[in-house]
Amino acid sequence: MTTSATAPAATSPAILIEAVDKWYGTFQVLDQVSLTVATGERIVVCGPSGSGKSTLIRCINRLEEHQAGRIAVNGVELTDSVRNIDAVRRGVGMVFQHFNLFPHLSILDNCALPQMLARGTPRREAEDRAMQLLRRVRIAEQAAKFPGQLSGGQQQRVAIARALCMEPQVMLFDEPTSALDPEMVKEVLETMVSLAEDGMTMIVVTHEMGFARRVADRVVFMDTGRIVECAGPDEFFDSPRHERTRSFLHQILH
C-alpha cells in the first residue's frame, strides 16, 4: 500500500525515517512513513491539512514522539535519552508557521540568547554571529527593535536567522508562509531560496508550489498519514502517478 521513498544512494543520510507510526489516542497520524534525505538535499512536503506533514517534521526534532519505527538525524538515532535529544535539536533548525519569536527580547537577543543558553557561547561571540546572520537575511538594521514592531515577513526572516545561529546541518520549515499577508510571502521565500542555493539540507512543508518547482530536489505528497507519492519536481507536477495527487494539485493550482 505505502510507497517507500528512498533517496539515491548517499554515503551518510542527513535524515533517515523508517516505518514510523504515530497515533493521537486511537487516531493514526503517521502510518508506516519512510523517507531518507541525503545531505544537501531539498525536500518539499505537501498535502491536505490533517495529512500528517507537520507531525512528520515535528517528529524529526522530537517536538512529538513517534511510537514505532526509527528516526535518525546525522547518524544519531532518536531514542528515549535526554542527551540524544539535545544533540539532535542543536543540529536541526526549525522555522514555525507563527514565527514564535520571543516577544520580550530584542531581535538581536532573540538570535543571541539561544546560543548562550544552549551552547554556552559567550555573549560577545553570540551577538557577532547573530548580527552576521541578521545581515544575511537583510534585517540587521532592525536588531534593536522588538518582534512586535516588525511585520510578519520581517519576523519570519528573523526566525530563520535565529535558527541559523545554532549552525544546524538541517533546516525544517513548518508552513513558513501560511500566516503571512500575500505581499510578504515573497521576501521570506527569497530568503529560503538563497539558503537552498548555499547547499543547506532542508525539509519544507508548504503549499507554495512555485517554490517547490524551483528549489526542491524531490516533492513528497502525503495524505491520511501516508506518503502517497515522492518524485522530482518535474515528474511530480507534470505527470503525477496517483489519482489523489492529481486531484490535490488540481485543487491547489487552479
Binding site: D80, S81, V82, R83, N84, I85
Partner: peptide, 11 residues
C-alpha cells in the same frame, strides 16, 4: 548513563 539519560526515569 543511558538509564540516567531517560527522561521518563528522570521524571
Amino acid at each position: 548513563a543511558a538509564l540516567w539519560d531517560s527522561p521518563r526515569l528522570r521524571a
